[in-house]
Design a protein around this nucleic acid. Structure first.
Length: 144
DNA sequence: GCCAACGTTGGC
DNA sequence: GCCAACGTTGGC
């Protein structure tokens, strides 16, 4: 796991927009990222710290990174889970990207070839290296 | 403890 | 609608 000089980690979190979209998050201002039922994704969420930044990715429909959010609460029991086995974090929107960055663009960019989301496409919560994070913001039209 | 069968995710 | 990747389950 890579950190920048402030100890901050970066992530990418997937959601199907017809289930929970970026606009839904903006409306709610803050949301529990629940329903993750994959151990690798759970482990990633357990590693998250307050203030870590995460890319919001629309899977299935759109197939693009649409915004940046921050971790607003660290791992705690997933309120949708009866068994008590699974955890969830809370996220809050920071900003929408000037324009989305599509999966197609990500795959076409050699600097992003090693991204976890590419290497393991089904992982719904994946770490992002700092240089990859910055590259995606640049591709989204944010000033360097 | 292995592995085949099956289910789910997510891209094409 | 299909398929690849991956996780889980259950028989042995």
């Amino acid at each position: 796991m890579q950190e920048d000089e402030n100890g901050m980690r970066y992530w990418l979190m997937k959601s199907e927009p017809d289930c929970f979209s970026w606009d839904d998050l903006v409306k709610q201002k803050r949301a529990e990222w629940d329903g993750v039922r994959n151990h690798a994704a759970q482990l990633n969420m357990k590693t998250m710290e307050l203030g870590d930044q995460a890319l919001f990715y629309h899977s299935n429909i759109g197939l693009e990174v649409v915004g940046v959010m921050e971790i607003a609460r660290t791992a705690a029991p997933d309120s949708t889970d009866e068994s008590g086995k699974w955890i969830a974090v809370e996220v809050a929107p920071l900003r929408k990207l000037p324009h989305p960055v599509t999966l197609k663009q990500i795959k076409a960019e050699p600097a992003l070839a090693k991204m976890e989301m590419i290497r393991q496409s089904r992982l719904s919560v994946a770490p992002v290296r700092e240089d990859e994070f910055r590259k995606i913001l640049e591709m989204a039209g944010e000033a360097g």
